[in-house]
Nucleic acid binder design. Sequence first.
DNA 1: CGGGTTACAATGCACTCGCATTGTAAAGAG
DNA 2: CTCTTTACAATGCGAGTGCATTGTAACCCG
Lengths: 198, 198
Amino acid sequence: MPKVVDAEERRRRLVEAVWRLTVRTGLEGVTLRKVAAEAGVSMGQVQHYYASREELVADAVARAVAALNARIEASIRAAGGEQDAETILRTCLTAVLGRDEEGMRLLRLSVAVLGQAVSDPAMAKVLAPADGELVAFTAALIAAARADRGVPPLEDGGVAADICWTLATGLGVEVALGQRSAEAAERVLEHHIAAVLR
Amino acid sequence: MPKVVDAEERRRRLVEAVWRLTVRTGLEGVTLRKVAAEAGVSMGQVQHYYASREELVADAVARAVAALNARIEASIRAAGGEQDAETILRTCLTAVLGRDEEGMRLLRLSVAVLGQAVSDPAMAKVLAPADGELVAFTAALIAAARADRGVPPLEDGGVAADICWTLATGLGVEVALGQRSAEAAERVLEHHIAAVLR
DNA sequence: CGGGTTACAATGCACTCGCATTGTAAAGAG
DNA sequence: CTCTTTACAATGCGAGTGCATTGTAACCCG
């Protein structure tokens, strides 16, 4: 086995080039040549690691979704343990609002991909916002936070958690489009959390 | 002035072809040739009415947004007058969830365009979800509905109305992607409205 | 020190794209 | 009637696309 290179590192470079290009010019502006140029490599290298453009884009999207999920989990872990339920709830919901630059890039990328997802069910599946497990976890957080406050539990906590995540993603879209600042979105979310815990 | 034809009717035909194509194959699948074929006309006719592809797409999006706004207003007018505030609130919020086929098409089209809007500020502006006037109107509805129920007014009704519309558009995105049925989205919205009026 | 496999680089090809150009049929104006 | 303007239809062109093919340098195994 000759010419040992770090294939994973190459793919990551290419995928990040796709991310930047997508945010800058939209998904339709992602061509093999532009990706190669953006990554500072030859087009041959792109073809060597991805058999087709479709495969490249799919991998880029999959990695972006994974990175976003990792961010949510990381935010839970960072605030978890000693903190109270309300703080954890606040933290993980605001994790998808693109506060820092990396988060903003991932957010804008996700929205840019939404267009494709309308006509491509496979993509829509990958982009599924909050899975059942996360909603259940959030419902537990809401219940715990209400208990901490001495407020009686909701009769339908699952729907409340569902609404929280749908609102958060809705806000995320507006932030990605520049229609709302990340800080303003955070304030709105804050307001809703306060209402849910009352 | 010879050869009098109904230019508005021609444009409408072309725009509707763009709508169908966009929903079916995404915005990047909209080419002048495909639009001509979809509308059953020659490519020359498309060029005759639109100087560039960009102009064509922009007009298609603008007309779609106008149609969506018209739907909201129509729903308000249909439920307005004799009905109570809560019913009107319910009706106009659910108007953007794509219950019928026409609404579903407009909804999916809007989401398909979101991708472009990320890298095109002009499009993002056109797609602005709920303008200030609509939010103010909604806040008034919420206040009236709470008064009807004998519940004290919210201290921050503007934010509550804002949240309602952001949640509705968030639900709309999920419906457009097929991740949630229009009926399920309506139930969730119903649940939130009930919470806001409590 | 070959030999074989890997990792590219470079080029070519068929195709599609938006748009420009040119031709032409029809209809009201005079 | 002719003339002029409108409303297309048809074709052409250069650029850009994804992908296939071919060439070549590097490296480990024996």
